[in-house]
């Protein structure tokens, strides 16, 4: 029973990890840049949901919390489109020399800026966002917290929608085409610039909605995104940069390793202390033995 409870917790956390890392993976795949402001996008989503939820609750709108969730996701999407237009598109279109270094600096600066903007704006305090479903679910001896299970179910649905979008719709295929080969996609009439904006918007909004779902479970504060962003980096490298399938599987592997690592280590008094180390150990091993990640493609050099 204990192992089953641990497994359920790992699956719940894994689903949430997958949701937040998919955005990072998508942005990397299409824009070929590592979004160092991913954790902060998550934080923005967390705060948006917090404020929208309390606003909708006090104005008794139909379904206040799901509405707050969708609105915050949409708002972060628009935020992403604007950011891409302002800071990234010019670098791409003008073929800026040292594009890679430029985008690292831009996203890094953006992350620091957002975090330090949130500090005076919202205060440094831990805030509790309302969960869509509270209470506990009991199945025999198994107890699962309601906020977690509802967040995991919603995250699962969003991931399913995303996969449908990427593999079954014209726009989604366009995104994947640009990720595979931007020049060929461009020749075939796909607007690469538009796809890049789209990918950045969707990628950031996935982080935002992950923040909205994590807020009720792990509290909202200006630094909330940092530990999750580190985990997302580990997951994306583990699964293979830009691979959707790899990211999802990587997320579950990390959640399992963290969860079971912190109870199965022979010295139980220290097991929890190394929780973050398990993920980083996994990252080092991946980089040593399979640098392209589990499902990543080996770089082809002419």
């Amino acid at each position: 029973m204990l192992m089953l409870a641990q497994l359920v917790n790992a699956l719940v956390i894994g689903t949430l990890y997958a949701l937040m890392s998919l955005g990072l993976s998508l942005i990397f795949g299409v824009l070929k840049l590592v979004n160092f402001a991913h954790g902060e996008s998550l934080m923005v989503g967390g705060y948006l949901y917090l404020f929208l939820a309390s606003f909708f609750l006090s104005h008794s709108c139909g379904l206040p919390l799901p509405l707050a969730l969708i609105t915050s996701m949409a708002a972060v999407f628009v935020f992403g489109l604007i950011l891409e237009r302002l800071f990234l598109r010019s670098a791409y279109e003008r073929k800026t020399a040292r594009y890679d270094e430029y985008v690292i600096l831009v996203t890094f600066t953006l992350g620091i800026f957002l975090q330090n903007l949130a500090l005076p704006l919202f205060g440094p305090y831990n805030r509790q966002a309302p969960a869509i479903f509270t209470g506990r679910i009991k199945i025999g001896d198994l107890v699962i917290a309601g906020d977690r299970i509802s967040a995991a179910v919603i995250a699962f649905l969003i991931i399913a929608l995303l996969l449908f979008f990427l593999y079954r719709t014209y726009l989604g295929k366009g995104l994947r085409a640009v990720a595979q080969n931007p020049d060929a996609a461009s020749i075939l009439g796909i607007s690469v610039a538009r796809m890049r904006g789209m990918a950045f918007g969707i990628g950031i909004s996935l982080a935002g909605v992950a923040g909205a779902l994590l807020g009720p479970i792990f509290l909202v504060n200006p630094g909330m995104g940092v530990p999750f962003a580190i985990k997302a980096f580990v997951i994306v490298v583990l699964g293979g940069m830009g691979s959707i399938k790899g990211t999802i599987i990587g997320a579950f592997i990390l959640a399992m390793v963290e969860n079971f690592g912190s109870i199965l280590l022979p010295d139980p008094t220290r097991a929890l202390a190394y929780k973050d180390a398990y993920g980083l150990l996994l990252l080092i091993l991946t980089l040593l033995f399979r640098p392209q990640g589990l499902f990543g493609e080996k770089e082809r050099r002419a």
Partner: peptide, 11 residues
């Protein structure tokens, strides 16, 4: 910075 204590609490 630990946020999830669930594994230990379950134990």
């Amino acid at each position: 910075t630990t946020t999830d204590f669930t594994p230990q609490l379950l134990q």
